[in-house]
Structure formats: structure tokens, C-alpha cells
Write a protein that binds this DNA or RNA. Sequence first.
DNA 1: AGCTATTGTGAGCAATAGCTCGCACATTCG
DNA 2: CGAATGTGCGAGCTATTGCTCACAATAGCT
Lengths: 208, 208
Amino acid sequence: MPARQPLHPRKQPKQVRGERTRQRILTAAAQVFAEYGFAAGTTNRIAERACVSIGSLYQYYPNKDAILVELVVRHLDAGEDALRRRQEQGLPGTLEDAMRVFVRIAVENHLDDPQLLRVMAEEAPRAPELLCKVREFEEARVAYTRDLLARYPEVRVGDPEMAARIAVSTVELVVHKVIALGEVVDLRVFEDELVTMLTRYLAPARLP
Amino acid sequence: MPARQPLHPRKQPKQVRGERTRQRILTAAAQVFAEYGFAAGTTNRIAERACVSIGSLYQYYPNKDAILVELVVRHLDAGEDALRRRQEQGLPGTLEDAMRVFVRIAVENHLDDPQLLRVMAEEAPRAPELLCKVREFEEARVAYTRDLLARYPEVRVGDPEMAARIAVSTVELVVHKVIALGEVVDLRVFEDELVTMLTRYLAPARLP
DNA sequence: AGCTATTGTGAGCAATAGCTCGCACATTCG
DNA sequence: CGAATGTGCGAGCTATTGCTCACAATAGCT
């Protein structure tokens, strides 16, 4: 690895041609990272896959990391959108339904491209910029979940903030593990159990 | 990165001197990996920290990965030992106590050296050999947990195997995240909530 | 056509880091 | 002591890879 200096004023594409090239590079990068991993997914390989010269690649992205950052940001945005769309359909009738929505969105999000997701999850902690963005999104989800829980009177936890935090992390991490690491389990059973765990935790049946 | 060929018949130390050198290398590697991360923790740096020449380093480890593998295996062994020792103290009185033991062991295990643990967790999925070993240990823990749950009559779950799997993963992943990623939370509150989640999930209060 | 800004090219530079190999030093043992 | 074996050394080879730069091609406009 040579000079990694951002002495580069990358340009915004001003013609359609440029926009399309940029998109080709991004798509190729997603494939290459998914196939080879981040380290072995060299910029030359990405350029080759995108049918673009290496020079062009560096015209749009200042360095390799920046490509990954854009991929991650796009993924986070997509996840947020999915949640927002569900949100607009109104509050689920029961807490269990609400939890099922969470889990299912997470599963769908990961099922899309498990390999790429795995790379992103592995590489995220390395780039401080990425870590920051990921945390931002996560904080938003925690806050949203905390508010959501407040709407169900049957919820009874010691520390609502911590409960939301644990719930969000658990869904994210456990789903990611099962999907990306390719555990061989029945997804329906998995979903049911995970939903049960969250529901029983947050809204325990009261003793007589 | 140049030739990574294991054309090497690494030797077992036959003198005490060799054994000590090996240990110095391992200790240094743990420090260097924790401080610089895996990629930036170069073999030369490790050798320097260990006050050993790189030639000596490669006399005991065929390549860089092998050093990490040994560190991970040692850590896994340590964790298993800790669990076994508790196990010999007899079955905890309640399920909640049993869960608390799990969580606390995980926390202690991670509190030991969060940075190194983080590196190991991030790097583990890359080396197939490591992934294999980690899974082996995890399967053992799942089996152990499944058996443990069977001993508490109040446990009521749809799929005991899946429940054990989810419980093990949740503890491991969530604890790791909170400790290694340095989330700013009260550890006591965190422990309590996590234990509560597991307990309520596995042994829900029965309705009248 | 001609002129300019934008986009595209790819050989090759520079830096890095894993790892080797020939040799020197240390330990053990007869 | 001296031979055999084990241990330690570290300059430098080799391969890789992120990235630059001088130049070429194309698009848009008059």
C-alpha cells in the first residue's frame, strides 16, 4: 500500500456519461467486495469489472475506502427507508407484531446480499468515518424504538432506554450472524423464537 | 503482501530458551494487535516488541495468521475453562442465576482486553481455520446450554435447540458489542436487563 | 469546424510488508 | 574440547497494490 493521500479534489459528474460511469463503478465494487472481500477486492479488479480504467475510478472516488463508505451509506439509507415505509402503515396492533416487523425487515435487508453485508459489517469498525455514521443511524433506531415501546402499555421494563438499546442490538447482531455467516437454521423457527424472546422480555405475562 | 506459502516445517522448541521466545512472541503479538489492529500490526513490529528478530518469529510461526490463530484458540480455551470451573460449583439455584453466570463470564472475559478481543472478533471470519474452531466451541456451548435448560422445569420454549442457539449468540454478540465498541452504558444495568431478557424468554411467567 | 470542458486511459511509480536464507551464536552431551 | 543440534539474527528479496499523471478521446456549444 502506497501513498494514501487525499490530495484530490474529486469531481462531481457533469454529464450523464459521468453519472453512469460512477454507477458502474459502484455496482462493480459491490460485486467484487462480495466475491473477494475488502482486502482482496483490489481497485484494479473493481475497475476491470466495471469496464472502466483505473484512472477513471480514481476520478470519482478519492480512495478505496470511499467506495465502501458510499456502499454502506446507501445500505443504511435503504434500511431506514424500509422502516419508514412500514411506519406509515400505522402502529402494529400488538407488541408482538411490532417486534415481528423489526425482525422481518432486518432479515429481508440481510437476505438481499449476505456476502456484501458481511464485508460491510466486518470492515465498518475500521473506518472511523463509517463507524460514526453507523452509530448515528443506530442511535436514531434506538430512539425510535424507545418511543415505540412507550406506546404499548403492556411493556414493563426496568430501564426503557437500555431495553431499547438491547433490543435493537440483539435483532441486528443475531440476524446478521445467522444470515451472513450462513448458519443452517430454519428461518421461520428462528424468526418466531427471536420475536418471542423480545416480546416476553418487554411485556412479561403478569402473575395473578 | 508477498509469497504466503506454507513451505515451512516449523519446529517445536526443544530447549527452554525456545519456549520462552515463543511465549514472548505471543505476548508481544497480543499487545501489538490490540494497539495497531491486525493489518497494521506487522510481523516486524511484533518481533521488535518481543525483542526478537523476525527470523526467529518465523521459526515458530509459519505465517502471521498462525499467530492470531494461536491467540484465539488460547482465548477460547480460557473461556471454556472459566465455564467449566463454575460448572463444578454445582447447578445454580434458579434459572436467573444460571443466566447471570453466563452473562458475567462473558463480560469478564471481554473486560480482560477489549481491544484484542475486538481484533480477534473482526479477524476471525477471514481465516477459515479460525472460523471452524470458533464454530466448534460455539456448538459445544449450545449443546451445554440446551442440556442446562432441560434441568430447569420452568423453562418453556417452542424449540429448545433454537432457544439455546439464540441465547448463546445473544450473550456473546451483545456483550462483545457493548464492551469492545466502548458503548457508554452502566454495566450493572446492562447486565440486569440482559439477564432479565433471557430469563423472561426462557421461563415466562404463567398466566393464572 | 473549431474550441473548451469533461471524461476516459493505462503504464508505471512508490511504498509496504510478508517472508527467506545464509550465517553466527548458544546449548547439550560424549 | 568439539561435534551436533537447537536457536537467533536481520538485510533484503519478491510480490502486491493503491494511486498518479501525462495524454487521448468525447461531448457540448457556437
